[in-house]
Design a protein around this nucleic acid. Structure first.
Length: 305
DNA sequence: AACCAGGCTGCGC
DNA sequence: GCGCAGCATGGT
């Protein structure tokens, strides 16, 4: 009898599981997955039932094991779809690497970060909350805030003495009060923004479906920005991570600016024309470029500059 | 103890 | 439309 709880996912060209894991396993404490010995553990929701799976690298494939939850063809397809979107497996990076090679300041990236994919956030509500949490605070603190919110009102399952969390749904978050969020060390305005976003979802003024059905980047950005607390940075971050708009640049991002300075693309923050001119050489790959520049922040290459 | 952190709103021009 | 103050809150 075959073991249906275990199956393979094909790896595309120009893909490195190690590089992708490296990004997920940076020095931050993310509560929404776990990595151990190069194996990634993740719990997701499929049709309102929780599934826990592990993802690791087999010979020339990725190997998925369903550790908890129903095992069926449908579940396998859902997990495959999730992984494909999470790691952006359908994208052909060739044109991007060609662009990188045209710039002597960046060509090293095609080797150093070879096979790194833009790691996404599939859940729009999670992406919005996460980017609001991350506004204007350091990432360590941001991950701590996220963990507190998830621990307070997200679902969790236990497997072999480990807990796996799922990001809460807007219907649950909206039951919180500003002072409850403040108790988690959210600032008052941040708490308000989180509730604004939850409310937009609950009232169906915003959903991934609504957003996907808008045909232009500008319309999607406009819809996101209609929510108080969502500015250019947040909207573009979400469009990059969830909608995978390839030309989305989270303008003003401090990490991005740092990386642009370190690569001598600008001399200091605020040289917006120079930034636009620079990105104009990467049409259709702007978001990937941003992601690779973020990657460079943790790289020795960055610190040597 | 200042200065910074994956910004945003609201105001004045 | 653009620039800038004021804003919260914890880390280093």
């Amino acid at each position: 009898m075959m073991d249906h709880s275990c199956f393979l996912v094909e790896k595309p060209l120009l893909f490195s599981f190690r590089e992708c894991l490296w990004f997920l396993d940076r020095d931050y404490d993310d509560c929404l997955f776990r990595i151990e010995n190069n194996v990634l553990f993740k719990a997701i929701l499929v049709d309102s039932s929780v599934v826990l799976f592990s993802l690791s690298e087999a010979e020339d494939h990725l190997e998925v094991k369903i550790l908890k939850g129903e095992v069926s063809e449908k579940i396998r397809l859902s997990i495959t779809k999730y992984i494909t979107e999470w790691f952006d497996l359908k994208k052909n990076l060739q044109p991007f690497y060609y662009f990188l090679q045209q710039d002597p300041r960046l060509s090293y990236m095609t080797k150093e970060y070879h096979g790194l994919r833009l790691i996404g956030i599939e859940d729009l509500f999670e992406a919005l909350c996460w980017s609001i949490i991350g506004q204007q605070i350091n990432l360590n603190f941001a991950y701590r805030l996220k963990r507190r919110l998830v621990t307070l009102c997200g679902t969790e399952i236990t497997f072999e003495n480990q807990q796996y969390h799922l990001f809460p749904k807007p219907e649950r978050v909206i039951t919180l009060t500003i002072s409850e969020l403040q108790a988690l060390q959210f600032s008052k305005s941040k708490a308000r923004y989180i509730l604004e976003v939850s409310n937009a979802f609950v009232e169906n003024k915003l959903s991934k479906e609504l957003l996907v059905n808008l045909s232009t980047f500008e319309d999607r950005q406009k819809l996101l920005r209609s929510i108080k607390g969502v500015g250019v940075w947040t909207a573009n971050y979400v469009l990059m991570k969830t909608l995978r708009d390839s030309n989305s640049i989270p303008f003003g991002d401090v990490g991005l600016l740092k990386a642009l300075v370190s690569h001598k693309i600008i001399e200091q923050r605020g040289e917006n024309e120079k930034i636009l001119a620079f990105f104009s050489n990467f049409k259709g790959w702007e978001s990937y470029l941003v992601f690779y520049l973020w990657r460079s922040l943790s790289s020795p290459v960055f610190h040597n500059k």
